[in-house]
Amino acid sequence: MNSHGRRAMAYWQEHRPQAWEDLLATGTDTETFFTDLGEQIEETIANLTRQFAGPDLPGESYLEKVGRLNNARARAMEVAWAEQTEAFSPQVTRETWANEAAETLEDLLTWAEEVKEWQVYRAAGGEENQDLLSPSSPEPQETAEVSIRYLLPQVWLESLIEANLTTPDPPIEDLDQWRLAMREYREVNRTVMEVPDEVQPEATHQVVVWNPVREFLLRSGNWQEWQASVERRWQRDRNLTEAEISDRHPSRDIWIYHQQNQQLPPHMQVT
């Protein structure tokens, strides 16, 4: 194992302990893994060194050539190490993940409200009145995509949407006014709900929820399903770096999940 492989192994043991544990748990030969990684880095450095050094210069002395090649290799090493973002970026902690993860309960509840509004809009407007359907926010994501993002069953999400009751039916000629009235109605029918903290389950934090949604969440099995989805997402994301957690996009979440060769649980398969 070359020096790059040894450096990478030491970095994983200290700064990416979960990824290191996963290697051991899967029976991966760590010696071979980091030997191969070190050789890949060395090959990248060699190619970049030739590129940065360029051809010999006319009239160049021996010492000048040595200096040029050394500078080129130093620059190549810097670039090659910087490109190894997965191998040499700090692994995300549970606390950072909980604070910066894209899939929060609050965002999910907002999504469900918007989906319900769109459903009512469509039912009231009909195909010939699509020009009236112009809420201020874009159309929410499809339930199947949210199911993959949140690792929640589609049937659970559909029930959450249905918990967002809407009354009265909107008048076709003034859908935007109905939407504002509906939101005002929700605001006076919300309550504070104490939920377990995602980092320290013995602690709690407050979430403001629409009363029918609170009843749905407290119904037998529903809150347990949400908590189980939190753990599933943590297991999915635990090997990501802090930069990936901060910068990720919903479509990237799906890519990461499938690139890790994991399978969605049967009850979450997208059909």
Rank of each mutant, 00 (worst) to 15 (best):
P265T: 03
E215C: 01
D247S: 10
E113H: 07
D131Y: 09
W20N: 11
D56N: 08
E86K: 04
E114R: 13
S3W: 00
A19H: 06
E78T: 13
D174F: 00
M182V: 15
E42F: 00
A82H: 06
D197A: 12
S61E: 07
G5P: 08
Q130P: 06
R238C: 14
A72F: 03
H267F: 00
S220G: 08
T85N: 12
A163G: 10
S3E: 14
I245M: 03
T241H: 00
A124I: 00
A87S: 08
W156M: 04
A10F: 03
T49I: 04
T96I: 14
R183I: 05
V66F: 02
Q227P: 07
I245Q: 08
D253E: 15
N99C: 03
R6P: 05
E142D: 15
T241Q: 04
Q224M: 05
P266Q: 02
I254F: 07
W20Q: 14
T167C: 14
M9Q: 14
E21R: 06
E117Y: 04
W210C: 05
L48S: 06
A46N: 11
A87K: 06
V79K: 14
G38T: 02
Q259P: 04
A76S: 02
E95P: 08
R252K: 06
W81K: 13
E21W: 01
K116S: 12
W12I: 03
V213C: 08
L105P: 11
L240W: 00
G38W: 00
P138T: 09
R186A: 07
G5N: 06
F52A: 12
R50G: 12
A87L: 10
D107H: 08
R236A: 03
P265S: 07
M77Q: 15
M77P: 11
A53P: 12
V207K: 08
A98Y: 01
S134F: 07
P58E: 03
P138V: 07
R252V: 02
S147W: 04
R6E: 12
R179N: 10
Y11A: 01
V192Q: 12
T166S: 10
T85E: 13
G27F: 01
H15D: 03
L151C: 15
G59Q: 08
P171D: 06
L218Q: 08
S89W: 00
V195H: 03
D131M: 12
Q91L: 02
P135L: 10
V199W: 01
E142G: 15
R214V: 00
T271G: 08
D169W: 10
P201A: 11
W178D: 09
Q84Y: 01
W255M: 04
E162H: 10
A98W: 04
V188G: 09
R252N: 03
T191W: 01
E127W: 01
L24R: 10
L180I: 11
S134W: 02
A80V: 02
G126M: 15
V230E: 14
P153Y: 02
A8W: 00
G27L: 05
Q206L: 15
R73E: 15
T110Q: 08
V199R: 06
E198I: 14
